[in-house]
Write a protein that binds this DNA or RNA. Sequence first.
DNA 1: AACTCGGGGAC
DNA 2: GTCCCAGAGTT
Length: 368
Amino acid sequence: MKPPRTAPAPFPVTPLHRTFATRLVAWQREHGRHDLPWQNTRDPYRIWLSEIMLQQTQVSTVVPYYTRFLERYPDVAALAAAPIDDVMALWAGLGYYSRARNLHRCAQVVVAAHGGAFPSTPDALAELPGIGRSTAAAIASFAYAARATILDGNVKRVLARVFGVEGFPGEKRVENDMWALAESLLPDAANAADVSAYTQGLMDLGATLCVRGKPDCARCPFAGDCVAQSTGRQRELPAARPKKAVPTRKTWMLVLRDGDAVLLERRPPAGIWGGLWSLPQADGDAALAELARGFGGGGPVPLAPLTHTFTHFRLEIEPRLSDMTDGGGVLPHGRDADTTWVPLSRLDAYGVPAPVRKLLDALSGPLL
DNA sequence: AACTCGGGGAC
DNA sequence: GTCCCAGAGTT
């Protein structure tokens, strides 16, 4: 009895389909990127570290962080052994801080449960903290030449344009179709050696030619066959995210100062700025004044307000400065698990959210 | 399936 | 200002 055939592809298999991988691999080898800091290695640790940092974050932003991490933590054992606070501090400014916590947890799992060696299959990789389907495929294809496809923002844009996939790729149905399409485009099993260049080619095409704003179709290996290019719909594909009004929230932040030091509080592990060190917050001027008094600080004076925009809401920050009065402090001048005094000159050692960092940097400037 | 997580680059 | 980026985890 023959094994059952695989289900037919839910899309027509055209000549473009059959030649896609070969053409992409050839283009990558000739015109792709070959000198990024995490290329030219098969060390799963280095590849993993880069892939986590590159989630929702552009290459130019990642490079300096990647260099610093590799310097501080040259292998997975070093990272696993590091205090989480050090990892968070080194990550500060990259955003999506759950990535840093998952990074640390993942390193510890790899050491404790896998003897310090990353698993080699996409499915096993995807069970580790912070590694989803796409990142698992990226690591497995780069480190182990596994035949698995990525599907990130670049790939969604390339596929939507080349194959004319309609609909917003963030929508479940569209994304499912794209996963199936991407799987069907992989180099066939006889060309497993091409998988790494293929994966890199998907990323490079999206990052260097098939960019969002003005795609360079003249240099594209798929010009002529590309649906968007041949119909002039580059600007319409992929479909944009449906617009949604972003709410505004407001918060009051206490800059409690004692000489050169300010008081920081550790934020809860989940939610905005999870696990980072930030300023004590209140819901209004009255509550903030009470907070300052409770700490032994003098009457708060307003500092320049600032606005910080997140993906899904806007945060208006009203900073208030309060100096500790002599002998009035009820707070010990050491640190406990969730509260600490930090000299402004030593903020680097703490994971502090970018807008708070900006606020405190201005404080040590010429204004005050 | 929809929502929640950031900061910065590019425009 | 807007939009999106080598997405994952939670609900």
